[in-house]
Amino acid sequence: MGKAMSVITSPFKYYNIESRAHKVISQSKPVVAPKFKDTIKDLERVLKDHPEIIEQAGKKDAGLDNRLKQVFVTSSHEIDQKRVINPDRPLPTNKHFAGFFELGYQEPEFLTPGKVTLKQILQFLGDYRLHPDEWTAEKIALEYKLKLEDVKMMLEYYKLFALYVPEKGDEKKRKLLKQQETKNFNQLLKQSTDKITFLPDENQRKPSNKEYPTRSDYKE
């Protein structure tokens, strides 16, 4: 029923709505909505009983004003203005944006044996591609402290891309790509192995064994 009624009445409801709305908006002073009958009755009754109320409302009450002047808000809670700064862990003083990381994330300072960083992966995959005889899986496993089977898996499944620049095409783009190609190649050759320190496993570490620096050594 509701749906059917609204279908019938809505065209009339919205007839000429735009101009009617503009008419209402364009009035300089909005028309006050009429009061309810009960409200008017109440107002009349109050005015009849207390006719002085209109005068009172317009005047300033000195008593109330004085009382308001005597009100103050105080707080007993003390705010410690000084921030406690731990000298061992000082807050950074330079708040400027440090720039993007090379690979999109921060390289770790410590590395668990058996794990590699992405940078190292790119490094040994590049080494393997350039000199597969020299950089065997065994050597890589020894160098990066990885399991031999893991290295073999990595060398099998992941490869570096070779960049191919098409002979035809946009000259500017081609030049840029060529530059990138030589730059990448030189970088690959220049890069020495990462200077990341290895952190021994907490369970396996012996107290006398000081082969790798530990977290506490690093702090000193």
Binding site: E102, G104, L122, L125, Y157, Y158, K159
Partner: peptide, 13 residues
């Protein structure tokens, strides 16, 4: 391919 935020590797499968 295996793709990371700023690097790409070939996936040999």
């Amino acid at each position: 391919m295996i793709i990371f935020p700023r690097s790409v590797l070939s996936w040999n499968i």
